[in-house]
Design a protein around this nucleic acid. Structure first.
Lengths: 370, 370
DNA sequence: ATGAAAGCGCTAACAG
DNA sequence: CTGTTAGCGCTTTCAT
């Protein structure tokens, strides 16, 4: 699907969260005069030119076989002549439905969400549907605004990563007849379909991997438990420890960092290194955090993995490209979106909750010889 | 703008170009029964319930001051009662216009484009507009299909990263009255506005930086010149060399790699290292390529930058986080999108060509002591 | 301040 | 096979 050598941009990445917009980059402007705007040709213009009725033009458009070849050609010629593009609003008003779906994610510039969006788009494309994509920026008001806008535009349905735990407005939209699929959020509701990734399982798999390698003291550099993913992953780690016969109280140190980026990882790791009974392995809440961890470990001359094993989460593009390739938990982002769209397009409109399993990608940061 | 601690996904990245979709991730499905779908309430339902005419309801919606407070309240109550959401198609059909713009990029999962999209969205949002985003996958047919779809939906205008050098269909759409802004492509046309980044200048700045550091033999690991960005960047490198009094023939070795990713960078760098008169500095067409270069240099025990200076392009998130932080050329992606949207929203609909200047971000891969 | 009615562009009966 | 016509839901004169 994805084009291989996608121009010179094939490699880019996002700026770290909270990065400043680049300073003014001195645009060069080169203006020209304005152009005139004409009224668009309508179906009756075509009918007049082709000397037929509007009904016939409509038939040529929608059921060409019902029209005599000669007439059809005449109409087609008129269409080309006038450069006629049918008015979708009118059609939609008449038909009541539209082949468009909406998606509201937290941030379109976040690769997790755009990979999901890509999955949605690919599935929608198969069905001839278009996607309207928007970012809520975690602002419930923006989310509500876009939801409303999509609904007014008559979309078939909406896939949304909720910005708040409160799902009342989504339930209401659902009751109004709009299809709604929750993204990356297990639905507590019987009326809203949902598609999510099992964060507990991902963290548990990573933990089991470390236990299998013989580690018995772990650190987890995590974000606030008010973030669902962080809480779920912490639960997964604890569950795996218990399952392995270890007491989370003694075998685990959880460090909470304020921002889930490289700086947070570096600071968190320094705290881990300062511990008197130093753990032998670290789990990081995401790969950027792990990157900061690797930086801190290098600065402290702690070899990886022999002095400290490191596991990330997300399996981002650079994870396998680092000086020490990073073991990480990969999430089926594309499938997540694909399935969400699939649910939205289901003819029966049934409610369904789907949970995908993440996959541990093992690399040298846990199994190497460093 | 961008929320700081955007959930646990704040750090993710994209898979490398050409990466396979992850294998089946064993979704867990949990179904429930379907729900009934009711007809949406219309303005006349509201009118009936509120015991007023539809015109009055419309007035409450659009010019509340024209309606007596008592009547207005009655209507408002009815609206709430019926959970009425106005039909945008009907409104648009009547009004003829719509507050939506479209954007067609090559790939929504590519961070360069999503950063641009974010800039577009932010500008559009200021004006109360919505964005419809789509990927052409560099397929001209898909591009044409989306263009048409957007036009049918009556969008104000479309911002597009053209998939082909042929701009005829875009010119035609423009002639039909649709606003069109070219993204990341300097327009050869008087009728189409455009917003682009100066690739020659970016490559030239990187080259001048290296020359200023005393390097006199450079390698450029680049992609095919059939990709506009690659050709432009090569021209920029050559121009800067000439300007510095060096003969590109002797001072520059250009290596062409098939895929602009880490593997390409690694292979290309091996070729550079095998040269008999080895360059002292390398330019890479993007950061992922530079990552591969760093990997190859490490494998060959060549210190960076003392044995080989390295410059990337794009300034992706991890560029500053590597073992050797990477000097790179940052592009004003967000501004690019912001300005494109700005052009689209201009009331005068004038044609304008804007070129943004990239910015060299200097780090240790060129100035360090390694 | 409110109501009545025309019509935006199109589709889908229904006639012929 | 083609024409006629009635709306889809809404906004907007124009009356009252």
């Amino acid at each position: 699907m994805r084009a291989p050598g996608a121009g010179a941009h094939g490699s880019a990445d996002v700026p770290p969260p909270g990065a400043e917009r680049p300073a003014e980059h001195l645009p060069t402007t080169e203006g020209t005069m304005a152009t005139t705007t004409r009224r668009r040709a309508s179906i009756s213009d075509v009918a007049r030119l082709a000397q037929v009725s509007v009904g016939t033009v409509s038939n040529v458009l929608n059921r060409p076989d019902r029209v005599a070849p000669a007439t059809r050609d005449r109409v087609l010629t008129a269409i080309t002549e006038l450069d006629f593009v049918p008015n979708g609003s009118a059609r939609q008003l008449r038909a009541g439905t539209i082949t468009t779906a909406g998606a509201i994610v937290l941030d379109v510039a976040n690769p997790f969400f755009t990979d999901v969006a890509r999955g949605i788009e690919d599935r929608l494309d198969e069905a001839g549907y278009t996607l309207m994509l928007a970012s809520s920026d975690e602002d419930p008001e923006r989310e509500a605004r876009y939801l409303r806008l999509f609904e007014e535009h008559g979309v078939q349905g909406v896939m949304v990563v909720p910005a708040t735990p409160d799902l009342a407005h989504l339930e209401a939209a659902r009751a109004r007849g709009l299809r709604v699929v929750l993204l990356d959020r297990p639905s507590p509701s019987d009326t809203l379909s949902s598609v999510a990734v099992d964060d507990r399982a991902g963290a548990a798999a990573a933990t089991r991997h470390l236990l299998g390698l013989g580690h018995e003291r772990l650190a987890f550099v995590n974000g606030s438990h008010s973030i669902r993913q962080c809480a779920d992953r912490a639960a997964g780690v604890r569950a795996a420890l218990a399952e392995g016969g270890l007491d989370p109280q003694t075998a685990l140190v959880e460090i909470t960092i304020p921002s889930l980026n490289a700086d947070g990882g570096q600071t968190g790791t320094q705290q881990v290194l300062a511990l008197n009974e130093r753990p032998t392995a670290m789990l990081c809440v995401n790969d950027l955090t792990a990157l900061g961890a690797l930086r801190a470990l290098r600065a402290a001359d702690v070899p990886v993995p022999s002095g400290m094993a490191v596991v990330g989460y997300d399996d981002v593009a650079f994870a396998g490209e680092l000086a020490t390739p990073l073991t990480s938990v990969r999430q089926p982002t594309h499938q997540l979106g694909h399935h969400a769209a699939d649910l939205l397009l289901r003819p029966d409109d049934a409610v369904e909750h789907v949970t995908f399993q993440p996959e541990l990608v093992i690399r040298e940061s846990t199994t190497g010889t460093g």
